[in-house]
Amino acid sequence: MNAVLRISPLFDVQAPLARDWTTRERMQVVARFGADEAARRANAGIGDRSFLQRAGVKGAGAAAWLNAQGIDTPAQPNSFLQLADGTLVARLGLTEYLIEDAPGGTRTAALMAQPPGERVYPVPRFDAALELTGTQIPELLRQTCAFDFSTLAAPALVMTSMVGVGVTALTLDSAEGPVVRLWCDGTWGGYLWLTLVEVAGDLGGGAVGVEA
């Protein structure tokens, strides 16, 4: 199974627009879409993080089970934390967790190999995961979502509806400034990506590759 290529939920919609491809975590990812990626990223870059490894788990026993595996869980509902190795642990609501490996991480593989404990229900996920960067992202969010993102500050996260599909969102600090991470069901992901790329295009931004 280590050799099997994973498909990105965004592959089909990105293929017509991609210039160069690469592989991350055994998934094909667009390396570059075009020539002006730096400008797009600075205005409203729609980046793709679907390739990161992810696992989900829920249930009354989920927090204790994760803790027993050395994974800290956030104390507050609808919040997140990052472990020292960069693993993202998001608490969705009261008793559901999304764990996302840092690039190259192996936590989620180890997690899914464990038999679930009592009142622990594994949640396989196939997320379209996006990363939004740039000065126009607040405007992009204003055009696509009725939630007031100016009230969202780490470590809070929000589950809401964006352009008609359910998304989980949070903001992170990065070297280039605040970054918005979005996750949605992969079967809605193509539509979400195309729509956000179109809106970003109106704001001087657009799709950006991983090697931009």
């Binding site: 009725a146 939630f147 929000v158 809401t160 509806s161």
Partner: peptide
């Protein structure tokens, strides 16, 4: 009660 105040369309 868990996610806060939202438009009724959610």
């Amino acid at each position: 009660p868990v996610n806060g105040t939202r438009p009724v369309s959610e």
